[in-house]
Structure formats: structure tokens, C-alpha cells
Nucleic acid binder design. Sequence first.
DNA 1: ACACAAAACTAACACTTGTTAGTTTAATAT
DNA 2: ATATTAAACTAACAAGTGTTAGTTTTGTGT
Lengths: 189, 189
Amino acid sequence: MKVSVRKREIIKVASQLFKDKGYNAVSMRDIALELGIKAASLYNHIEGKQEILSILVLDLAKEFTLGMNKIASSELSPTQKIEQLIEMHIDITVTQSEALAALNNDWMHLEGEDLKSFIEMRDDYEENFRSIIKAGIANKEIKNYHPEVILFSILSTLRTLYLWYQKRGKLDVNVLKKDMVAVLLKGII
Amino acid sequence: MKVSVRKREIIKVASQLFKDKGYNAVSMRDIALELGIKAASLYNHIEGKQEILSILVLDLAKEFTLGMNKIASSELSPTQKIEQLIEMHIDITVTQSEALAALNNDWMHLEGEDLKSFIEMRDDYEENFRSIIKAGIANKEIKNYHPEVILFSILSTLRTLYLWYQKRGKLDVNVLKKDMVAVLLKGII
DNA sequence: ACACAAAACTAACACTTGTTAGTTTAATAT
DNA sequence: ATATTAAACTAACAAGTGTTAGTTTTGTGT
């Protein structure tokens, strides 16, 4: 897994363009222009457009998987696990919003084995999250609403947080974490 | 505003393809193929690809604006207004998930005046929502968290609901509304 | 049966797409 | 200095894009 400096630059520039316009609306010439080189020169560093997307999406998906496994297998209570998950999402949002945008919006443009393994990781992640919620309900820590409703109301918020963090980016991360955990767990009224 | 039957068919088919692959990944030939005709024949009914996107996104945006104006100007309490907004989003999700996908994912591919008026409607919508939340906080009906955090945790959930409703689509709409309102307002613990 | 309009067709356009081949320039090591 | 390698370049490709022009088919009302 050797990744040259130039390759990282290309991926970074591409991810910024993908975030604004989406994978399909960004051409190799767009990426090259931003770097001040010609499109053909990109191929000295990367295999192709697909590889950029794969790296962006799969690397981040692996990071989520790793974090989830660590939290899920810990000795924390369900509620504490959810708190940790919320904080992990916020940390990733703050440091990697471009890759997160690609993961959210452009994963379906992956191909072959990459697409398969992404979907598998995503399903596993959700299944782990669901189990934590169910354990909390069985536990009486969490109210007895439909687990699916709880799952997606939390996950939707966390997944699209990157859209808001850039717009109203002045929020301090620790304030955000504190209020976010409170709103998602204890409600607003 | 005359819209022929065939034109409606084209828009419907296109919206389904847009939902799965995104505006830019769907060609006029894809749309035509689905309808069993040639791409050039589409132009007997529509002005172009952009028109399809405009109709999908702007019509729905207008519907949201209308609903918001009605609710915001009512005599309900802030909390009741939010309840109504949640129910409106769920109703629209259930009946128009394809257009909602385009509004969420492909609005940035609108051009010129259409893009401008979309952004204006979207900003107005959010500003109205924000005002309701602030009124609730001033009111002591709503807890004193950062209004922005409350706003986007609710809106994110509602906007991406269409993704879940198709996957786990067996949820009864009234159960969904009830649990959703409860989770978003009263929290889960 | 005939005229007319709606809606399909074929063929082509100008342009953009990702990518490859082959070449030249720049940087580094001996 | 010279050889080697990395990284840029030019030029072009085959395929796909949205769209237009002109023509034929289909359906409807008289």
C-alpha cells in the first residue's frame, strides 16, 4: 500500500470536486486543470478515475468498520456505545468531509468487487448499530420504539452532518458533540 | 401549465432512473430505452434533459414551500408546528420518493434561474424552520440547545427518509409518523 | 377515403468522456 | 558527465453525450 505524495494530492483535489458536483459531473480534465497539468499526466500516478473513487470510499468505509467493531465489542452500555458512535461520526465529519460526501453520494458508481465489499461493510455496520439499539431496548435503557426508526433517525443525521458543518462551520466541535448527543438521545422537548 | 400524459410518463421513468444512478449517470438513451422508444422521440414531448430535472425539483420545492407557509402562519404552538412538518415530510416521502431523491441529490445540476430560485426556496424553508425552533426555545417548550443542531438533526432525518422507506418499506405510515415524532421530539432514552 | 396532427423513426451533428501510445523534460544517482 | 527514472507533455482513439433535421408511421375526425 504505497501511496505517493502526488497521488495523495490528486485524490484530495478530486474529492473536493466530487463533493461539489458529484463523481459523474467531474471529468479527468477538471481534476487535471485544478492541479495545473494535463489529464493524461494523471495516469502516471493513478490507474484511472475509478481508483480515485475506490480509495476514497473504501478507505473511509474501513475506518468506520474498524471504529464500529471496537465500540461494539467493548464493555460499555448500549447508551454509552451510541454516544461513542456519535462522537466518532463527528470526528470523521470534521476531518474527512470530502471522503464522506463521496461515500454518501457516489458509492453506487463503484464497480465489481469494490461495490460488493462496500455494500457488505455498510450492511454490517447498520446491523451492528441495530443490535446495539435492540440491546438497549431489551435493557430498558432505550424506549420501546420501532428500532428501525431509531436507527435511521440517528444515522441520517450523522451521515449528512458534513453538509451542515461546512455551511455553519463555526460550531466548536465539543459543543457540537455535546448538543448532538443530547438532542439525539434525550430529544428536544 | 399543460402537461400531456406522455410527458408525465417520461418524467416518471426518468425520475426512477435518476433516483438509482443520479442525474448525470442517466442518458436520454437510457430513458428512451425504458419507454421502448428512441432518444430523439423524447423531444416531441419535452424541451430537453434539463426540463425534466427542473420540473421534478422545482415542483416539489414549491410544494414544500406551500406546506411550510401554511404551517408557519398557523396559530399552532411551535411544537405542534414541528409535528405537522414531520408529518408533511413523511407524506411527501411516501408519495413522491423519486422526486425527493432528485431534490436532495441533483438540485446542483439545475442551471441559471432555476438554480437560483431553488436555492432561494430552500433557504427560505430552512429560515422558517429555524424561526419555529427559536420561538419554541424562547417559549420554553423546547430545550435550550443550539438551534442549528436541532434544525439539522430533524431536517437530515426527514430529507433522507426516502432512502429507508424503500428498503424497509413495510412500515405502516401511521406507525412511522407516531414513532418518528416521538423519537425526534422526546428522544430515545 | 382522406386530410391532419401527433409521435415515432433514421441519420447525423458537434462535443465531451476516459484512456492509451509515444515523446520530451526534469530530477536524481552513480 | 552520464545513465536512469519520474513526471510532464502532445496527439489521438473509440465510445458516449444531448440535441437537431428531416422523414415515415400511427391514430383520429370528417
